[in-house]
């Protein structure tokens, strides 16, 4: 069944206070940002008979701002605008790379960072970068504002910990204290563009003068119900030199940090192998 426009009501607040007022009157409103996830479901006949809270007029949430500690990206900033922003480009290149791989040009012009997070697909391409950059999500509701560490937003496949009435206002990413020695973003899909990830990875590595690992951050998407930081791998590598034996062991440990599945896009086996190869090539520099 196709979406039926007559079944839908739309509220179009002009600013955040208006949006929150609408929400406190009716916590059952369904938020709408760029619509690239919402409208696909709606066209397929889901999400009918809703009252939609269209956020697209909230100008304040379309801004990217520099703060003392980092950068604040409004939830309505599109994948396209993120790629164009000079500070994001120079300080957070892995996020820029990820946004450049979200769908094609048309999707990037509409799809937003907030919508990507709220949709909570296991394959969300911005998640591994936001994970290794240790972003914080600002959540706004009629009860007030709270700061949630990025990973705590996710509850499972397409599920967040956001309560009815809660909106993602912005995402804050702290500046890195030092430039990493290696960094990587890789998306593996069936074709170069506009394909959903089979696996997607982001890594940051800092080395000491003696080439031992000072800090490693590595995250994978599409390898578990939500994006995962490889905690076992990270702590194992700490203080070690990346000899072939250490890299081998790190790749074995990866299995402990993820729980990939067989699905229409790929198999568990394939996903594990590819992720291990990505980790290996990253650690080998």
């Amino acid at each position: 069944m196709r979406g039926a426009p007559f079944s839908m009501n739309v509220l179009r607040p002009r600013n955040a206070p208006e949006a929150l007022r609408a929400f406190s009157k009716n916590p059952k409103l369904t938020p709408l940002a760029g619509g690239t996830d919402f409208m696909v479901a709606w066209n397929a006949g889901q999400l009918q008979n809703r009252v939609v809270l269209d956020l697209s007029r909230l100008k304040e949430w379309k801004k990217i701002q520099k703060t003392k500690e980092g950068i604040r990206i409004g939830s309505l900033v599109t994948h396209r605008r993120i790629q164009e922003h000079p500070v994001v480009r120079s300080m957070f290149p892995l996020l820029v790379r990820a946004c450049a791989e979200v769908g094609g040009w048309q999707i990037q012009n509409r799809g937003t960072l907030g919508g990507n997070i709220a949709n909570a697909s296991p394959a969300g391409d911005t998640f591994p970068p936001l994970s290794v950059y240790e972003g914080m999500v600002n959540v706004l509701s009629p009860r007030g504002r709270k700061r949630v560490p990025f990973h705590q937003v996710f509850a499972g496949v397409k599920k967040t910990t956001l309560q009815p009435g809660e909106l993602i206002e912005s995402i804050e990413i702290p500046y890195l204290k030092n430039r990493p020695h290696h960094q990587m973003f890789r998306k593996v899909g069936t074709r170069a563009a506009q394909a959903i990830s089979k696996t997607v990875a982001a890594g940051l590595l800092w080395l000491k003068k003696d080439k031992t690992v000072q800090e490693l951050r590595f995250a994978l998407g599409s390898m578990a119900p939500t994006a995962r930081r490889l905690k076992s791998v990270e702590s194992f590598c700490l203080g070690k030199r990346m000899t072939p034996e250490v890299v081998d062991r790190a790749c074995e440990l990866l299995v402990q940090d993820v729980s990939p599945i067989d699905d229409i896009r790929s198999t568990r086996e394939y996903r594990l192998r590819v992720s291990q190869n990505l980790l290996r090539s990253f650690l080998n520099g």
């Binding site: 426009p5 709408l32 690239t36 696909v40 269209d54």
Partner: peptide, 10 residues
């Protein structure tokens, strides 16, 4: 943009 994914109010 994809006009199949945009409600006209937007």
């Amino acid at each position: 943009v994809n006009s199949c994914l945009i409600p006209v109010c937007q």
